[in-house]
C-alpha cells in the first residue's frame, strides 16, 4: 500500500546521505587537526611563516611549501585561463558544427589522462624543453629575479606549465557548458542592436561571467591539490623565491615524498599539519570564489531597495 509516511522515510534517507558529506568534511578536518597536535603545539603560527625544514634537528616550517603551492597554482592559472577560455569560446561560438563534438571530446579527454602520465611526459618532454629555454635565456634577462637560476629544466616553470595543461580541460569544459547555456535571446539582442560576432560573444561571456569565474576557480582548486605530476618536475627543493627557473617544492609534493620516511612522531605530525594547511587553503579558495560569484549575482539580479512603481501611478 502507498502511504505518505514512505515520503518521510525517503526524505530521511536521502537527508542522511547529504549529512554524510558534511560529516565527512568535518571528520577530515578533525582528524587532520588531531594528528598534527604535536606540531601545532610546538610551532604554533610560526609553522606558517618559517622556512626551516630539518627532520634531523626536529625543526619544521612550512612557508616554502605554501609558497610553492600558491606560486605554481597562480602561474598555472595565468597560463591556463586565457587558453581554456579561448578553447571554450571557439568550441561553443565559432567552430564549424562538425568540429564541435570532436573538439569538446578531445579537451575532455585531457582531463582523463592520469596525472602520473602527465608526470612522465613532463620528465621526458617538458623538462628538456624548458632546459633548452633556460639555456637560451640571454644573460641580461637572467639578472631579473624572475629568470634567475641554473638551467636545470626541473623547477617552477616546468611545474606551472604542466599544471596549466592539466587545468585547461577542467576550466574549458565548465566554461563551454556555461556559454552553451547562455540563452540565444541574449546574443540575438546584441546582434539586433548591430553587434559584431565578437561583441555578441562578449555579451554571452558577460551573461555567464559568474559561472566562468567559477570555472577558473575550479581550475585553481585543482592546481592547488595536484601532486604527482608536479612532484616529478618541480625539483623538490624548499625555497621561497620568485624565480621561475629555480627548483621549488609544494605542499602536496612534500607529503607524498616524505610521508613514508617520517620516522619520529613530530615529523609525521608536521607533515599532517601541512595536509591540514592545504585543506584550509583549498576550502578558503572555494569560499572566496563562492562569495565572488554570489556578490556578482547579487549585483546583477537581486531586487533593489527602491520599490517598483506600479505602472498606473507612474503614468498618471
Amino acid at each position: 500500500m502507498r502511504r505518505s509516511s514512505d515520503d518521510r522515510s525517503f526524505r530521511l534517507g536521502t537527508g542522511a546521505f547529504a549529512a554524510l558529506v558534511l560529516l565527512l568534511v568535518l571528520g577530515i578536518a578533525f582528524e587532520l587537526t588531531r594528528q598534527s597536535m604535536l606540531s601545532i603545539a610546538k610551532f604554533g603560527l610560526k609553522f606558517w611563516t618559517t622556512s626551516t625544514w630539518n627532520p634531523v634537528s626536529g625543526d619544521f616550517g612550512a612557508l616554502p611549501f605554501i609558497w610553492g603551492t600558491l606560486y605554481s597554482s597562480i602561474l598555472a592559472l595565468l597560463i591556463a585561463t586565457p587558453i581554456a577560455l579561448g578553447i571554450a569560446i571557439f568550441i561553443s561560438e565559432l567552430s564549424p558544427r562538425l568540429l564541435r563534438q570532436p573538439l569538446a571530446y578531445l579537451t575532455d579527454l585531457l582531463a582523463a589522462i592520469p596525472s602520473i602520465v602527465y608526470g612522465l611526459w613532463g620528465v621526458f618532454v617538458l623538462v628538456p624543453f624548458v632546459r633548452k629555454l633556460e639555456v637560451a635565456t640571454p644573460d641580461a634577462l637572467k639578472k631579473i629575479p624572475l629568470f634567475n637560476g641554473p638551467p636545470l629544466g626541473v623547477g617552477m616553470l616546468a611545474a606551472a606549465l604542466i599544471l596549466a595543461v592539466m587545468v585547461i580541460p577542467f576550466t574549458s569544459s565548465v566554461a563551454r557548458e556555461i556559454l552553451k547555456n547562455v540563452p540565444s535571446t541574449q546574443r540575438e539582442a546584441a546582434y539586433a542592436l548591430g553587434a559584431t560576432r565578437w561583441e555578441a560573444i562578449k555579451v554571452a561571456i558577460g551573461f555567464g561571467k559568474s559561472g566562468i569565474i567559477g570555472a577558473v576557480m575550479l581550475g585553481f582548486g585543482r592546481a592547488l591539490g595536484e601532486t604527482i605530476a608536479v612532484t616529478m618536475v618541480i625539483g623538490n627543493s624548499p625555497q621561497v623565491t620568485a624565480s621561475l627557473f629555480k627548483p621549488q617544492y609544494t605542499m602536496a609534493a612534500v607529503i607524498a615524498n616524505e610521508f613514508t620516511e617520517a620516522a619520529d612522531e613530530l615529523y609525521l605530525h608536521a607533515l599532517i599539519e601541512i595536509g591540514l594547511l592545504l585543506f584550509i587553503i583549498t576550502v578558503a579558495v572555494n569560499i572566496i570564489s563562492r562569495l565572488l560569484i554570489w556578490s556578482m549575482k547579487r549585483r546583477v539580479v537581486a531586487p533593489i531597495a527602491a520599490p517598483i512603481v506600479p505602472a498606473e501611478e507612474a503614468l498618471a
Binding site: T185, A189, A190, L193, G194, A195, F207, V300
Partner: peptide, 29 residues
C-alpha cells in the same frame, strides 16, 4: 541592424543596469 531595430517575443534585457542596457547599442557604436 542599426537601421532596423528589433524587439523579441520574450523580453531579453542584458543582466546589467537599466542605463547600461539602453546604452549598449550606443556604446558598441
Amino acid at each position: 541592424r542599426r537601421k532596423v531595430g528589433m524587439v523579441f517575443q520574450k523580453s531579453n534585457p542584458f543582466p546589467k543596469s537599466i542605463y547600461e542596457n539602453v546604452a549598449y547599442g550606443l556604446k558598441i557604436g
